[in-house]
């Protein structure tokens, strides 16, 4: 039994040392800080899978609005049906199937559009409308207060544009903004 014990001790110690080395080698790298999942809005093709592929009942992907690239249009193609009856907030004119966008008058002729995130399902319908005709100020982002931070994001797995990747936890968003726009 002595020989067996010696053997076991040796294997155990070797494994411990190996694991320690593994840990040290990883932690030594600067990349050892936390990661979260995020969408690159410039890669996003508004395919609609964000609404269905999230493990949550209601997706953690929400539409967010970059006000500084918004045109504040009276006729917003992200807000109104392609051929609205009239430019008012009546439900039949609204593009959003869940009514998650608010339209408020600022001053003639500008209107501000804000997202009511609890209602947003992340289907990207408005994003498509805004990006197709307008400035693309509406875009999708993963909301980290909703996201359960899966080890592997199931939307990322399905994303046809490969637009979802891990980002450092201290820069958890990739908003569209003035600085990076052409």
């Amino acid at each position: 039994m002595k020989r067996r014990d010696f053997f076991l001790n040796a294997v155990r110690s070797a494994t411990m040392v190996g694991l320690g080395g593994l840990f040290a080698s990883f932690v030594h790298k600067a990349k050892a800080d936390g990661k979260v999942w995020q969408i690159d809005p410039w890669k996003c093709t508004q395919c609609g899978l964000c609404a269905t592929e999230c493990v949550l009942e209601q997706s953690a992907v929400k539409c967010v609005h970059s006000f500084d690239i918004c045109g504040y249009c009276r006729l917003c193609t992200g807000y109104f049906e392609p051929q609205p009856n009239s430019l008012n907030t009546a439900a039949e004119n609204q593009l959003c199937p869940t009514g998650a966008i608010f339209r408020t008058f600022v001053e003639d002729p500008y209107y501000e559009y804000t997202i009511n995130e609890p209602l947003c399902v992340g289907c990207a319908k408005c994003v498509k409308g805004c990006t197709m005709f307008g400035n693309g100020s509406l875009h999708l982002q993963i909301r980290h207060n909703v996201c359960v931070h899966c080890n592997e994001c199931s939307i990322a797995r399905a994303c046809p544009a490969d637009a979802i990747h891990r980002v450092p936890v201290d820069q958890p968003y990739k908003f569209k903004s003035r600085g990076e726009q052409v």
Partner: peptide, 19 residues
């Protein structure tokens, strides 16, 4: 099967923008 491969969104048509 990859949803993306079929090229069709699994969403109800009212969730897709179509002009």
């Amino acid at each position: 099967t990859d949803n993306a491969k079929t090229g069709k969104s699994p969403l109800d048509p009212r969730f897709t923008y179509d002009v």
